[in-house]
Computed example of a mutant assay.
Amino acid sequence: MHIFYPIGTFYPAQSGGPSNSVYWLARAMVRQGVQVTVISTDTDQPAETIRDQWIDTEAGQVRYVTTRNHNVPWRHSWWSFKRLITSDIVHLTSLFYPLSLVVGFLAILRGQIVVWSPRGELAPNALENGSALKKTVLNWFRWKAKAITFHTTSPDETKQVKHQFGSSVRVIELPNYIELPPQFPRSDQQRVPYLLFLGRLHPIKALDRLLEALARSSAFREGNWQLKLVGSDADGYGDLLRQQASLLDLTDRVTFEPPVSGRAKQQLLADAYALVLPSHSENFGNVVVEALAQGTPVIASTGTPWACLVSEHAGFWISNNPEDLTVSITTCLSLSADSYNLYRQRAAELAQHQFDSKANSYRWLAAYYTLYSSNLTPSVCAE
């Protein structure tokens, strides 16, 4: 079985979650003995990445195609078509990325097995400012939905897919499985305890609501706490947050830091008292698993698919209105040492049992083989 992943950006690029999640999936399939090919643009690649050559990696054969315009990757499309011909399954990421649409169209035209991951693009917040072009693309998907198996990462995203494309559409519902890093010990030099947000600073992340909640929380204001906002700024949202922090008298309590990766990222997560993800909408959130893997509890909004944080006693899952956020933050910051350590233990166990790529990759292998052996006849729904 040969699986082909055409994608806009791929590890070691860190432009978005799929760069890593597809990498982890590809590596897992290679470990299972599957032939894997990945073709990516060279967007966000470090200088040492080899361009325009096939590279044998632990994630299969990978080619990073030099690309001048990320949204018009003509050379990538050409190489993808050449590799498409020899593939058994084509797994695409993003419904609206031009490359995915071109390759998907050609794969469907050839009658090939197509798996497509929307990656949160069907959430109401993502579609509320939908252009006429997006509506046209969605109409095309409705027309071709019977030829596609959609991959979703949560029950909510499955509902979104079925709402858009029909209740009988084929769906593989599986979370992003991650290659869990080793659990880092907390730094002895850590002096000021902090809450952490890690990701791009964008309005959909609802960080303005988080700041308002912190200003209302007596536990945060009266304790020696900080909030670290770590990530790249999107459309000037960071400047708005800085202004808001000043108005709320939180300037000394909130720091803005650039993106981090590798060991520095894992240490940042390990040292955090809790990760906070107050987003209006998330289809998954890889950073949640990364935090849990470090034994760091998570406070996530109900706009994210993380209800299991409550059932597994690994964190809090609440509305992102400032009032509810305030209650959860205050409760979290007021935990006894024993209660907090139990949350840390359950967080690490949750990551290991439910989201470890090595322990769960057989689920993807089974889903792919079901499609491969039945040529799209049955529906595939994983637990």
Rank of each mutant, 00 (worst) to 15 (best):
P124E: 02
L292A: 08
F96C: 02
G303V: 08
M1E: 05
V65I: 15
K134L: 00
Q243R: 15
Y273F: 14
R27Q: 12
R27Y: 01
G262Q: 04
N375H: 14
P322A: 14
L292N: 07
S373V: 11
A219P: 10
R83P: 00
S40L: 01
A351T: 05
T49I: 10
Q226R: 15
F184G: 00
Q190G: 04
R27F: 00
E179W: 08
T370P: 00
I299C: 11
R119A: 03
I85Y: 03
T57E: 02
S336Y: 05
Y343S: 04
P182I: 05
L335S: 11
L133M: 09
A300G: 10
R63W: 14
I108E: 12
L195I: 12
N341K: 15
W78I: 11
W140P: 00
S319C: 08
E323P: 00
G231C: 01
L95N: 02
T57G: 00
V114N: 07
G238V: 04
L325Q: 12
E58H: 10
A293H: 04
W317K: 09
W116M: 03
Q266I: 01
R110H: 08
P12T: 10
V298K: 06
R68G: 10
L269A: 04
I148A: 07
Q35S: 14
E48H: 13
L174Y: 04
I204Y: 03
L95Y: 07
D249E: 15
Q160A: 10
Q267H: 03
S131F: 02
L333R: 12
P278I: 04
F284D: 07
S301W: 12
H353I: 13
R170Y: 04
T37K: 10
V230L: 02
D208F: 08
P193M: 07
L229T: 01
P322T: 09
S80I: 01
S328W: 11
P278Q: 05
Q354K: 14
A337W: 04
L207P: 03
P378E: 12
V30L: 06
W364A: 03
V169Y: 07
A123S: 14
S117H: 09
T304C: 15
D338S: 15
H151L: 07
R75Y: 01
V137Q: 06
A132K: 06
I204D: 09
T377V: 08
P181G: 01
G285T: 07
G315Y: 11
Q160I: 00
L95R: 01
S339G: 10
Q294P: 09
A219V: 13
N176E: 10
H202S: 11
G262S: 03
S19H: 00
T152H: 08
Q112N: 13
Y64Q: 00
H202Q: 13
S261P: 00
S154F: 03
H163S: 13
T9G: 10
S281H: 13
T158F: 02
L92K: 07
N71V: 08
F355I: 04
D42C: 02
S19G: 09
H163N: 13
Q189M: 11
E212Y: 11
L198I: 09
I113L: 15
D249Y: 03
V102M: 14
P12C: 09
A147N: 14
I3H: 05
I204G: 02
A359D: 05
L250N: 03
A337V: 12
Q183N: 08
A264E: 13
S167L: 11
E349Q: 15
L268F: 02
L240F: 00
